[in-house]
């Protein structure tokens, strides 16, 4: 594969008569872990849902050179996985069964899980450290545990592109870092990850690239050092920040609100 993994050109999204994303273009290569950052209402979730094909859009979204609007739903599900922001689990399904739902697009109707399916499910559970409660009903887990189970479900889908909406929300620091490592590793294995994030410190340290959205447009795009600067923090978020370096990585800590003119 020579071209980009994900290619978005001239993307427009209208929700309820309001233009939420305007003329956005973005391309992501394999091996990239893209952090999608920006203030509330910047259009991060909308952009992710648009890429996943969940809302009608103007413009084109292509994965590995194929336009998604020309693919069937199953074909699309083999190319990208999506973790929604809400942790919705309607019925008390055992964790391993829930994670195995990620294999849905790989299976034809009425066939049992193949040994490859089982192995992928097991790997995903081990990766997200949820194999310990494989037999427990997912509805009985804590918020952070549910979040990890749902990410494991998306990993079991085994797609070249993974989209995650605020995957680190609700995780303790250890699991936040563990999740960042998993995403870095997956990118290293030749996948592409796009995750929306609010934790600037986490995204600065772990993402290979940051895309800063504001008002439905990309206002900065590049390596964390180039995107997260005192100027962007002040003009986009309206906060001042501490910037430093530790263990060869960028450290960003928002400090206080600044008066906006």
């Amino acid at each position: 594969m020579s071209g980009p993994l994900l290619d978005i050109a001239g993307l427009d999204v209208d929700l309820g008569g309001t233009s939420v994303v305007r003329g956005l273009s973005l391309s992501v290569k394999t091996g990239e872990f893209v952090g999608l950052i920006g203030p509330n209402g910047a259009g991060k979730s909308t952009l992710l849902r648009a890429i996943a094909g969940l809302i009608p859009v103007g413009g084109t979204v292509s994965v590995a050179g194929e336009r998604l609007d020309r693919l069937g739903t199953t074909e699309r599900a083999l190319r990208l996985a999506y973790v929604p922001q809400e942790h919705e689990i309607a019925w008390p399904v055992p964790v391993e069964t829930l994670v195995a739902l990620g294999r849905t697009p790989h299976r034809s109707s009425f066939t049992p899980l193949s040994s490859r399916d089982r192995q992928t499910v097991k790997d995903a559970m081990v990766r997200m450290d949820v194999a310990r409660f494989a037999k427990r009903p997912a509805t009985a887990l804590s918020g952070g545990e549910k979040a990890r189970v749902l990410i494991a479900r998306a990993l079991a889908q085994d797609t070249p592109l993974i989209l995650a909406d605020e995957p680190a929300a609700g995780l303790d620091p250890a699991y936040q870092i563990a999740l960042m490592r998993v995403f870095r590793d997956l990118a290293g294995e030749g996948r592409g990850i796009i995750a929306s994030m609010h934790d600037l410190g986490l995204s600065a340290r772990w993402c290979t690239r940051l895309v800063l959205l504001n008002g439905g447009k990309i206002v900065a795009d590049g390596p964390p050092e180039a995107v997260l600067t005192p100027e962007t923090l002040r003009s986009i978020y309206g906060v001042s920040g501490f910037f430093g370096t530790a263990e060869d990585g960028l450290v960003v800590q928002p400090l206080d609100l600044v008066e906006r003119r």
Partner: peptide, 23 residues
């Protein structure tokens, strides 16, 4: 009866189900 798999996926909500290939 043809809806079994789709309903399984819908356990995780409409968006997640659609992203898993459910029409």
């Amino acid at each position: 009866a043809s809806l079994g798999r789709s309903l399984d996926a819908l356990t995780l909500g409409a968006d997640a189900a659609a992203s898993m290939g459910v029409d």
